[in-house]
Design a binder for these strands. Sequence first.
RNA 1: UGUCCAGUAGCUCAGUGGUAGAGCGUUUGGCUGUUAACCAAGUGGUCGUAGGUUCGAAUCCUACCUGGACAGCCA
Length: 462
Amino acid sequence: MKHSAIKDCLQLKKKYDEEVTICGWVRTRRDSKKFSFIELNDGTCFASIQVIADAEIETYQNVLDASTGSSLQVTGILKESPGKGQKVEVHAQKVELLGIADSDYPLQKKRHSREFLRTIAHLRTRTNTFGAVFRVRHAASFAVNQFFNERGFVYLHTPIITASDCEGAGQMFRVSTLDALKPPLNDEKQVDYTQDFFGEETSLTVSGQLEAELFASALSKVYTFGPTFRAENSNTPRHLAEFWMIEPEMAFCDLQGNMDLAEEFIRYVITYILENCKEDMEFFNKWVEKGIIDSLQDLCKSDFERITYTEAIKALENAKKSFEYPVKWGMDIQTEHERYLTEEYLKKPVFVTDYPRDIKAFYMRVNDDEKTVAAMDLLVPRLGEIIGGSQREERLDVLKKNMEKHELDEATYSWYLDIRRYGTTPHAGFGLGFERLIMYLTGIENIRDVIPFPRTPGNAKF
RNA sequence: UGUCCAGUAGCUCAGUGGUAGAGCGUUUGGCUGUUAACCAAGUGGUCGUAGGUUCGAAUCCUACCUGGACAGCCA
């Protein structure tokens, strides 16, 4: 089917008085006795195009049958529009009805609640909001790959199925082909995973970091960008059981270099989206999060703050504000504290570094004070934590001690330790939740609305 | 998982102990270079589910289910 994108017609890549064929779905139709107006949208851009069909054309009955949601192929002449709402319109000569939409088509022209649209995730992409979200998601995804490619990073596809447990990143989903009702048992009456598909217990990955470290120890700079799975029973607007994570890992890099990259990365993606998704961003700016364009632009101009955990604790202690969780060195920074730091105290994104080692993962590099580790979290207004990263412990003896502390089995991680045995290097990396980035870019407040088909506790529909 | 809030027409909601409502959508007709079109008529319900209190429950109570917010876990 030869046809033009509505985007190209609206941007006048096709010229006035030129014949065009366009395809799309009817957003709405307005009839009079002598002609009809159809708003046709094909998702190639935010805007719909106005089709005007004279009642005299042979295929006019198709126009009258084209209910909201129906799919059409329209051939006509591109014209300058005398009406107020648009510059361009198509004067139809032939209208083909490709697929009629039943009268119970659930999308109306007016606003629907996000909660309702979530129940019809197979259709919600036909709305203004979700069309814009997923065009931005695509553009951001492209920008991510372009950013790393320009800087000499190798895109690494780490495994989805993994046998390494206890990465400290959360509960894992088991992957098994054993009979769930009658699994084979061993002598200790435990499930005998040696009889399972992989000959051992396996799960879906919670992070590609460990594998990325291995590759960084050969290719210098790598990144992963793929699905990640956490079986936590989290019911919040910023958690998913299946989400997409970006994890760069760099050899010969310390915590400062790690933060420099993270900051440059965020700026790069924001700049790309502001330049390439103008129409969609204007929609978010007007209807979803007022002023988001200005605030993203401001962000690109000023440096992010960098404070240590110890400084953050002092700031919280001095805050003229009472917190539900008391502030004390050694505690975890709670959501209310994060919000204060980034939204009230500094009013901009902030890296918090050098956390107490007792509350952080085994692979983070121990600082000289032996009390803290070279970790960093990036906190941003509206969202809280968007990035978590660290310089990795490259010293074999220190790493072994840490693993002992965390009660991890050395044998399971022999390959991870080998990297410290054969030409170890200072190295660092971070993890960034792609959906959280999209929330940050669009102003959408619930993470379930920035991924095509969200997986959350109790919900794996579509 | 805990706490709180909410489930009434396809959607968004009003109704707080006495006959089930509105706007939008949809259907039909009319009108207009229309554009969240307009005008008129029609359409629409096991009031989340199951118990209980009461002469009487959408309304009060209990449990469960579903959705949302906040918190924890994190990206």
